[in-house]
Design a protein around this nucleic acid. Structure first.
Lengths: 186, 186
DNA sequence: CTTGTCTATGCAACGAGTTGCATAGCAGGA
DNA sequence: TCCTGCTATGCAACTCGTTGCATAGACAAG
C-alpha cells in the first residue's frame, strides 16, 4: 500500500489540506498514483490518529476554513522505513487490451472509435506533461536533488505516454487492416 | 470492472477450469490483467450463478477432478455489450515512482539496489514476451484475425517493457549522479 | 519416511478503491 | 433569480483485491 506514503511525500514537498492534496493527485503526484478526495480524507484521518501527521486549522474568509497537514517525526520515520523495504513491481492493467483480444469474438472495426478516444486522452496527457517539463525544468537549469528526482519521474510519464501513443497507432492500423481485409465480419 | 470480461475472453479462446485460468492469468492474459486464483474462483461462481458460463465436471485419475467452464449465450451477449461501451483509460500506479520522489527526503543512493531489482524483473518479462512472440508469431506467418489481435496486444507488452527498461536506466543514472555529486546526503 | 511440489477447489477476513450523497458559503453568468 | 462551479470536509455502502488458511491425493527428491 502506497497511498499513505504518497501523501507523506506530497506533504513533505509542501504542507497542505485534504482538498489541496486531492488537486495534487489530479496533477503531479497523480501522474503515477491516483486517489479520490474521499480516499484521501479517510487516510488523512488514520494518519493523524497514528501520529504520522499534524494538523493546523486555518481560518479563511470568503471560503471555508481548512485543515493544513504537515508531516510529524513518526511520519518521516515511517517513510524512511518504507523506502528501505522492497516493493514488488506493479503489473499492468489495461482493459483496452482485454477489449482488443475480445474483439476476435465481436466486431474489430467497432473498436476503432474507442481506440481513437484513448489515443486522444494519452495525447492530451503527453502535451500536459511536456508543458510541465518546459515550465518546471527549463534547459540547463541548475537543479537540486529533489528537482532532479521530480524530473526523472516526469520523464518516465513522458516516455510512457509516447510509447502508448505509438502502440495505439499500431493497434489502429491492425484494426483497420482486419476491418478492411475482412469486411464480412460486420 | 473487467475481470469477468477477461475471463470471458479467455474462456472463448479456450474453455478451462479455474485452476487453468489462474495459470493463464500468470501468463498471456496476465500480461495486461492480473488476478489471483481466489479472485477467479469467486468471480467464476458469480458468473455461473448469473448464467454467463456453463460448467462441466471432468473426472481425472492421478489428480483431482476439475470443473471445466465454457461461455454460454448470455455471457457472449454481456461481452458484446461491454465491448460496445466506452471504458476510461487507466492511470498508472507506480510505487517505485513514489519512492523516487520520496528519496529527496531520504537516501537517493539507497534506492539504487531497489531500482536494479525492478530492472531485472522487467528485463525478464521482456525476454519472456519476446520468446512468446518468436514461438507464436514466426516471420510472415499467415494469421487469422484472432491471432493478429493477440499479436498486437503482445507488441504492446513488449513496447511497455522496453520503455520501462530505458526509463529505469535513466533513473539509475540520475540516482548515481546524485549519490556521487552530493555525498553529504547520507 | 518426510518434505516439498503440483493439481484442484474454496472460505474468511481484511484492506483498498469507487460511487453516491450531504453540507455550506461565495462568485459569476443566463 | 436560478443554476452552475469552486472551495472544503466528510459519511455510508458497496465492490474489488489481497492474505492467510484449509483440504486432499499424486509424485519426486532427499
Amino acid at each position: 500500500m502506497a497511498l499513505e506514503h504518497a501523501i507523506l511525500v506530497s506533504l513533505l514537498e509542501q504542507p497542505g489540506s485534504g482538498y489541496e492534496l486531492a488537486r495534487r493527485f489530479d496533477r503531479s503526484i497523480g501522474y503515477f498514483w491516483t486517489a479520490s478526495h474521499q480516499q484521501i480524507y479517510r487516510v488523512l484521518g488514520r494518519m493523524e490518529r497514528d501520529g504520522w501527521i499534524e494538523v493546523r486549522e486555518v481560518r479563511q474568509d470568503g471560503r471555508p476554513d481548512k485543515k493544513v497537514y504537515s508531516v510529524a517525526a513518526p511520519g518521516r520515520s515511517a517513510l524512511s522505513a518504507w523506502l528501505a523495504e522492497p516493493v514488488e513491481p506493479e503489473s499492468v492493467r489495461h482493459s483496452l487490451a482485454v477489449k482488443i483480444r475480445g474483439a476476435a469474438f465481436g466486431d474489430p472495426a467497432g473498436l476503432i472509435a474507442e481506440t481513437e478516444r484513448h489515443r486522444a486522452v494519452h495525447a492530451e496527457r503527453l502535451a500536459h506533461y511536456l508543458a510541465g517539463e518546459r515550465r518546471d525544468f527549463p534547459d540547463s537549469a541548475l537543479l537540486d536533488a529533489g528537482q532532479e528526482l521530480q524530473h526523472v519521474v516526469l520523464r518516465g510519464g513522458i516516455a510512457y505516454e509516447r510509447m502508448t501513443l505509438a502502440w495505439l497507432d499500431d493497434v489502429l492500423a491492425t484494426l483497420r487492416r482486419l476491418g478492411g481485409a475482412d469486411p464480412d465480419t460486420h
